[in-house]
Amino acid sequence: MASNRAVIETAGLWKRYDDVEALRGLDLQVPSGSIFGFLGKNGAGKTTTMKVLLGMSRPTRGDAHVFGHSSAESNSSVEIRRRCAFVSDEKDLYDYMTVGEIVAFTRSFYPRWRGDLEQQYLHKFDLQLSRNIKGLSRGTRTKLAMLLALCRGAELLLLDEPTSGLDPAMAEDMLQALVTHVSREGSTVFFSSHQLSEVEQIADHVAIIDQGQAIVAGALDDLRSQYQRIHLVFENDAPEIKVRAPGTHRVRRQGRVVTILSSSRGDAVIEELRGYKPATFEVSPVTLKDIFLESVRTED
């Protein structure tokens, strides 16, 4: 389906706004054709990243490239936006226009506009052309913003919290529209989200950003198989455990129970821990939520 080239590539990306450092050396690679989930706490730098990629903010230091074009330069930035579609977190549109007017307006900028998809989504999302944008509910505005993004014939969709403010049914509709679009059109999707379950549902790659840096990044299946949670129960009070195997290990000890969240794949850790001779030894799978919470929690 896709070439191996990275659609989005940042290297050592820094962004300072006045005295706030929003990005502090972000390294990111988004493979072509992937559905890439971008996770992080509020204020971690997710929206800033998208703004820099689209030329809305200029990087303080470092590189940001989309489709191989530099995001920092005005002309190449236009070229990037020709092939992208963006939906902001707030999904604000022009409240002095009607649905029909903004569709016609947006259409005029994209020669590859898909009229067939336009008709399809107008029908599917139940959007009337004559309605004023001013009176639209958040959910309807989101659907309109999504329509405007999906019809551009864009190779890359950048979505900032696409399902925020939506009820579960509408959120599922959004995700379905995304999955359908990707499977039929082969575009790349780069979306930020707080909803870990929806990321797990549709993403094949993720990155977790914390304090302006990518803490964890990679193919979701690889990450999940890399992390494991190990429970040890001892006959008497648990001993102090120091893991020597490579990778990150969070050890929590309480009475006779020790829990370890380990990012080093495989048996080295398990062998080492068996050496402590626990009475019970259990390995359980780790959800993305576990990985997320452990990655963004401050060091003990």
Binding site: F86, D92, L93, A145
Partner: peptide, 12 residues
Amino acid sequence: GSALFTLSLPVT
């Protein structure tokens, strides 16, 4: 809020 929408268009 609509500035971001405008700025996402392929215009300088």
